[in-house]
Amino acid sequence: MTAQLADQLACAVDATSVVDLVRLSGGASRETWRFVADGRPLILQRQRSGDGRDMGVEASVLRAAGAAGMPVAQVIAAGTGDDSPLGASFMVMTAVEGETIARKILRDDEYAEARAMLPAQLGAALAQLHAIPVDTAPGLVEQDQIEYYRTVMDTLGQPHPTFELVFRWLEQHRPVSPRQAIVHGDFRLGNVIVGTDGLRAVLDWELAHLGDPMEDLGWLCVKAWRFGSAKPVAGVGEYQELFDAYEAAGGGRVDPDEALWWEVLGTLKWGIMCILQCNAHMSGFSRSHELAAIGRRVCENEHDLFLALEGRW
């Protein structure tokens, strides 16, 4: 089966030799492989057919982000549907060397200089992304997140009074007349490759959508993505550093209250995602005491929400 995939890949990237094909991960909706084609290290992402949005949308966003100057892996080949050389939608990208594990980036000495540069680099990367015209990548849609996550909560059937209080606050304090941009949707440590020289590539574009660009800034500041660090921006910087870098790179002026609104929504979302992860265990989909324990982390998010909104109700 691996030999067949190697042949298909050689055809897809027009290479004479494909070697060292290794599967890195396989989720429910996609699998990731690493291989070397004619001496060049590459990454394959292949979609499991008929599941979710077609990967072709993601490939076009990634190409647009690269063209806009954002640090991303270069798309070498992409195909859509059953007719593609791989029998499913896929993307082949350059393999970018570096670290993705947040705790290493935040704690290891070799990343000390990178940590100092990251707040400005992350802000500039977002400004580049948000400047891309929204019609560049057809297939992206905007969704009302309050409505969506309320539905998720109701489907789960585990009502949380804290979340209801916060949903009401969010409704009553919605940012007025937000811009619309291409939003990454999961922009944080863990989804970026960092080298000792700083930010090298922004990964994981599968949640990209249209929406208020402040969503990406707020999500980057959610406490879970500080991985225990005291600094609010991805565990590496202060709010003002991020906002100044974003503005300096052409992203426009940031209203801290709007960014906070998205940080609050992000904290609420992460709380709901904790319930969903626990549910993967409870439903029998993936029995694991690690997933079970995440269910008891929901109250961390509830507490963070009360702290964030103290004096703002």
């Binding site: 009074p161 209080l165 008891r296 109250c299 961390e300 507490h303 009360f306 109700w313």
Partner: peptide, 16 residues
């Protein structure tokens, strides 16, 4: 809010 937060603190005192 005061009562809900108090129960959240109780949950945290067990969870973490």
């Amino acid at each position: 809010r005061e009562l809900v937060w108090a129960s959240v603190r109780d949950k945290l005192s067990v969870a973490n």
